[in-house]
Amino acid sequence: MQPLTTRSKLVVDKRMNFWERIYLPAIFKGMWITLKHFFRKKNTLSYPDEVRPFAPVWRGWHVLKRDEQGRERCTACGLCAVACPAEAITMTAEEREKGEEGLYREEKYAAVYEINMLRCIFCGLCEEACPKEAIFLTDRIVPSDYVRQNFIFGKELLVEGTTPEKRIDVTKRQKHIQEKITK
């Protein structure tokens, strides 16, 4: 019969000799191994205090970007919802009224834009599908919660702020993608 794995070991049930039977050498060997681990560098990362750097390709919590003048880029075309394999995105479109030109870049905008973070698989297809460069995935982690309802993120959690310090930087990931494409 073919062995199932290359690492299988033949088990021999031979009589143990005296030193094996008193177990003490084996015990001391084991204690030596644990003692080496005692002085080894620890792998623990004290998470909230120290954060492990993310990979540049990390895909996390989405952001709906604004343009330079602080207007929402999204035009509620629905391509992201179509592209989404997990069907996590829903939206309701509305027409831009007079006087709202400072708020929305296009004539149509998303009045409601919801991503169900429990459904989302963070594949990034919405980002690729977006023709307006509105939705991006960032390196922020979606926080945990006790209530399922709270995982349906509306616009208040997705759209970035208008002030410069509230803007969310997506250049790191985008630069990485560009480099990969050009290469």
């Binding site: 644990t34 681990h37 005692f38 080894r40 620890k42 792998n43 623990t44 004290s46």
Partner: peptide, 13 residues
């Protein structure tokens, strides 16, 4: 603490 150190952890801190 000692258990943690033997297991390459930090322990209560």
């Amino acid at each position: 603490k000692i258990a943690a150190f033997f297991q390459d952890r930090i322990g209560p801190n």
